[in-house]
Design a protein around this nucleic acid. Structure first.
Lengths: 153, 153
DNA sequence: CGGGTATAGTTTAAAGTTCAAGCATTAAGG
DNA sequence: CCTTAATGCTTGAACTTTAAACTATACCCG
């Protein structure tokens, strides 16, 4: 175990910011979702992904990949969403092993009711303090980190 | 519930990146910590914060605030760390309600053994794909988001 | 003082996540 | 074909986090 190359002062600073950001940002946003819709960000994300395709249907494995969750975690969450009546499972016709998750009408309504408050919270917390220039700067400069992090999974 | 101001294309894009980043970055780094040191990032953070003060001692509430954890969560985690022999509790002499957490010698050794691999992982994942300019750009442009997120907690 | 309230922390139970195992079904190789 | 391996998903137990109730000390103000 040889000495690593330690971080420079600026790198250390950025690292701390990234850590704080990834701890604080989700909880800031989740607070609102929890309060107003009784759901967490992960559940919202699942509903949102379903609503984005025309038939409101996705494979478990597809959802799991998109949301970066284990199939096991997703399965438990879908069970909960199913109990709420927001989603239902159905066997995939073309692959006997696979199961589709389908957004129900109730789930769609729920999402439609939830989205505005959620967006408002995101706007208040993230974008109000940002200039348009900063938005595009961040879009560009975060990309390398994101690529690297996606490669490493 | 009136229509909110929806996000622009660029804002939406950035929001997705931030969400993905805060989901993927912790798990990328934690994978290494888990594998090589059997600890998660939160536990590492607690040990690291303790090691940063001369007497290796901090109040529970202080640690909880710094790490953005609930006192309850911290209490559970400290119990686990205590069972590993890495920290110990001791009553605060000046305030009967408070308890100090102290990094043990064993804990300090553990941290010293763990740090190099951790830093290497952080460097590989985060900083290798970043130019020095990007590091300082990010340092500057993330600050407003961070400020806002810290205010909102 | 003395009573009310705030602070610091622990504990319990419920909720959520992860881990390991298991069960079908499909794909691959001889 | 038939066996073996891989894939897709579910389940139950172990573990972690959260929420709520509880204990104990400190502070404040009449």
């Amino acid at each position: 175990m040889s000495e690593p190359q330690w971080l420079s002062e600026e790198e250390r600073e950025l690292w701390m910011k990234l850590v704080r950001l990834s701890m604080l940002m989700p909880s800031a946003v989740e607070a609102q979702l929890k309060r107003e819709a009784g759901m967490n960000q992960f559940e919202y994300l699942v509903l949102a992904m379903l609503s984005e395709v025309p038939d409101m249907t996705r494979l478990m494995s597809d959802l799991a990949f998109q949301t970066n969750a284990s199939l096991s975690r997703l399965s438990h969450v879908v069970t909960r969403l199913e109990q709420q009546g927001w989603v239902r499972r159905s066997a995939c016709p073309t692959d006997g092993r696979a199961t589709n998750v389908i957004l129900t009408d109730v789930g769609y309504e729920k999402l439609k009711d939830t989205a505005p408050g959620h967006v408002t919270a995101v706007r208040n917390i993230i974008f109000d303090p940002l200039t348009p220039e900063l938005v595009s700067t961040l879009n560009r400069s975060l990309q390398p980190i994101l690529d690297s992090v996606e490669k490493n999974r």
